[in-house]
Structure formats: structure tokens, C-alpha cells
């Protein structure tokens, strides 16, 4: 069972993309869920092996777009009908065809804005500090080494058992990550 630990997790180092992919699949099959992998280049299938799931970003973008469209329409309606009614080209004050281009723009603007901000929020970015950098060898993740991290807050995490498990997967080294 998980005990109270004072570490962030265990970081296993591998020297080939197939090895980290196989290790992630094994760890997922073993029941580990709170894990992440760090590689110098995208490894195909790794995200799925880690249990990557779709986010709620699309629905956020949809809501952002709807909000932007409604806001744009309300803005135009307020300006053209309530606050400063002005006859243009003999048209009624509430001339929806003329509103469409601006409503379209505000829809796109708010949808794009919620895509960027929503992506950052769901990713937990910006993140000025991350414990993995406490392991000096982690710098090699951007060069030629592949890392698999299992976090201590995973219910299955056990400082000793998890270390033995990672070593058995063929890791070149397993490092404890200071919080």
C-alpha cells in the first residue's frame, strides 16, 4: 500500500524509444496511472500507452464561440437599436444581415481565445517549477535518453516495490525525484 513519502516520484531512465514505450505499457498494465514520459522526440504510441485521454477542450472552445457570438450580437444590438439608433441606407435599426460579419468575427475571436487559454489551463501551464528537474540526468531528456516517471501520489506507488518494478523493466537507472 502507498505510504506517506517525501519524494515526488521515481524516474526511470531508458536508452531507446522502444524500451520506454514497452515500460509504459507494462506499467499501465500493472495498474499505474499517475505517470508521464519524457523523450527527446515524439514516440509513436507512447501517449496512448500512458493512458492519454481526450480533454474537454473542444467543448470549452464551443462555449467560447457561442459566448463570443452572443456578446457580439448584444453589442451591436445595444449600439444600433438602444444607445444610438441611426438610419443607415433606409434600413431598420435591427438589421441582422449587417450584424453577421461582426458576430462572425467575435465568435472566432472568443473561440480562439478559449482554445489558447483553455489549453494552457488544462495543461497546467505556465508551470515555473517542476520537480523532475531536480534529477541532474533529466537534462538528457532533450538529448538521447528516455524517461518514465511514476508519481508518488499514484495509489499503487510503493517506494521499494515500484523501484524494483522499474529496474526489472530494463531501466538503466532509477532516480528518486525530490519534491
Amino acid at each position: 500500500m502507498a505510504e506517506r513519502t517525501d519524494i515526488y516520484g521515481l524516474l526511470a531512465e531508458f536508452n531507446a524509444p522502444e524500451k520506454v514505450l514497452a515500460a509504459a505499457q507494462r506499467a499501465y498494465a500493472e495498474g499505474y496511472r499517475r505517470m508521464d514520459a519524457y523523450t527527446p522526440f515524439p514516440v509513436e504510441g507512447l501517449a496512448e500507452a500512458l493512458g492519454f485521454h481526450r480533454t474537454r477542450l473542444p467543448i470549452l472552445v464551443l462555449l467560447g464561440g457561442l459566448f463570443g457570438g452572443a456578446l457580439g450580437y448584444a453589442l451591436l444590438y445595444y449600439a444600433e437599436v438602444i444607445d444610438y439608433p441611426l438610419i443607415v441606407g433606409g434600413k431598420p435599426f435591427h438589421s441582422w444581415p449587417a450584424f453577421i460579419p461582426i458576430v462572425f468575427e467575435t465568435t472566432i475571436f472568443f473561440a480562439a481565445l478559449s482554445a489558447v487559454l483553455g489549453m494552457l489551463a488544462l495543461n497546467g501551464l505556465p508551470m515555473p517549477y517542476h520537480p523532475v528537474f531536480n534529477v541532474p540526468r533529466f537534462a538528457l531528456a532533450s538529448r538521447d535518453r528516455f524517461f518514465l516517471l511514476i508519481e508518488a501520489r499514484d495509489p499503487k506507488f510503493d517506494r521499494e516495490a515500484t523501484r524494483r518494478f522499474l529496474e526489472a523493466l530494463g531501466a538503466d537507472g532509477v532516480w528518486e525525484v525530490e519534491p
Binding site: K91, P97, I100
Partner: peptide, 12 residues
């Protein structure tokens, strides 16, 4: 389709 409509509707 809307562009054509908007231009012709505006010009009237």
C-alpha cells in the same frame, strides 16, 4: 452565398 446577399442587400 452570404457575401453576395450582404452586398446586394446593403446596396439595395
Amino acid at each position: 452565398a452570404f457575401s453576395q446577399f450582404l452586398i446586394i442587400w446593403s446596396g439595395n
